[in-house]
């Protein structure tokens, strides 16, 4: 795959605040890249610099070999951008908003008409096409903004928090849409805090922290299979309400136990500890008079999730 985006030592500051510091990375064409990082890490600034919306110095960012700083117009013709703030005209209908987006991005009347119809279908907006955009809920507005960004089928699409405000069904549709767009040849860069969905469609990951690049790799290498100090445990208890309550209390207070799930007498959890730590945990349960029938590794769901990997890279204990 060719390199579509190349960044070489990008730095940017807002007054005294450094937003980006010496970022260097390459993105291959045809990939879907996740851009993750905490709030204030520089994700939005990076996206705006890539799309030519910020005044950067020359020969630092190139898109398909074109320098963004010296030829921003050529770059603009290739990119689509969805900002984190929703953008649309509230008094225009959904269809009019998309028609305008198509027209100003160079589509002819016929091409625009077709593109608008296709995009309305893709984002499930057909039923709302005649409604004023401002009268719709947050989730629908988010879809309108996404639709505007993709209606002209750009070669490179940067999306800043595209799933914000969407319900789970809509987020699932969005994941499918991104896969569809990628299969149609679009290169995507997606920033999001909803890590669970990113791993559904991303094949590459970039991680920012305090304006610096702290990680960049293929997602398969990023997630760890069955790390020796991370395992899924399954604990079967006697059908005794008191035992179950005591067990849940002890497990929730143990910092090595996460993702505790309980159904009937069965408790499953993610345990971050060695075999010796596991032994101590069981001893604590017995000491609390919890009737444990069996305890061992749960062989369903072995893979570390992106969320866990993210927190592991941040050296943080994953939240419960």
């Amino acid at each position: 795959m060719n390199t579509l985006l190349s960044i070489n030592g990008l730095s940017f500051s807002y007054g005294r605040k450094t937003a980006l510091n010496g970022i260097s990375l390459d993105l291959k064409e045809g990939g879907v890249t996740a851009l993750i990082g905490q709030n204030g890490a520089g994700k939005t600034t990076l996206m705006r610099a890539i799309t030519g919306l910020l005044p950067i110095t020359e020969n630092v960012v190139t898109v398909d070999g074109i320098d963004v700083a010296s030829n921003p117009r050529k770059v603009h013709q290739m990119v689509g951008f969805l900002p984190d703030m929703l953008g649309f005209y509230p008094s225009l209908t959904v269809q009019d908003n998309l028609a305008y987006a198509a027209q100003i991005n160079g589509l002819t009347d016929e091409e625009a008409r077709q593109a608008v119809e296709n995009t309305l279908l893709r984002l499930d907006l057909t039923s709302k096409k005649s409604d004023p955009a401002g009268s719709l809920s947050r989730g629908w507005r988010q879809r309108i903004s996404i639709a505007q960004a993709i209606v002209h089928s750009p070669r490179f699409l940067a999306l800043d928090e595209p799933a914000t405000g969407l319900d789970p069904d809509a987020r699932l549709s969005l994941s499918k849409l991104f896969l569809e767009l990628n299969q149609a040849g679009m290169t995507l860069l997606v920033s999001s805090h909803i890590l669970a969905e990113l791993e559904d469609y991303c094949n590459h990951i970039i991680m920012l922290e305090d304006g610096e690049l702290v990680g960049q790799r293929d997602i398969k290498n990023f997630l760890a299979y069955r790390k020796s100090d991370v395992k899924d445990l399954r604990i079967e208890l006697a059908d005794d309400r008191t035992s179950i309550e005591r067990a849940l209390l002890i497990l929730s207070q143990d910092t090595q136990c996460n993702d505790i799930f309980h159904r009937d007498r069965i408790i499953t959890l993610r345990f971050h500890g060695t075999d010796a730590d596991q032994h101590i945990l069981l001893k604590n349960l017995f000491a609390a008079d919890v009737h444990v029938l069996s305890a061992g590794e749960d062989h369903n769901g072995q893979r570390e999730t992106l969320r866990d990997a993210y927190h592991r890279m941040n050296n943080k204990t994953p939240p419960r």
């Binding site: 705006r48 919306l53 951008f81 005209y89 991005n105 160079g106």
Partner: peptide, 12 residues
């Protein structure tokens, strides 16, 4: 309406 950047990226 947060549309200025969108216009900047357009071909108008």
């Amino acid at each position: 309406n947060n549309m200025w950047d969108f216009i900047r990226l357009s071909r108008q």
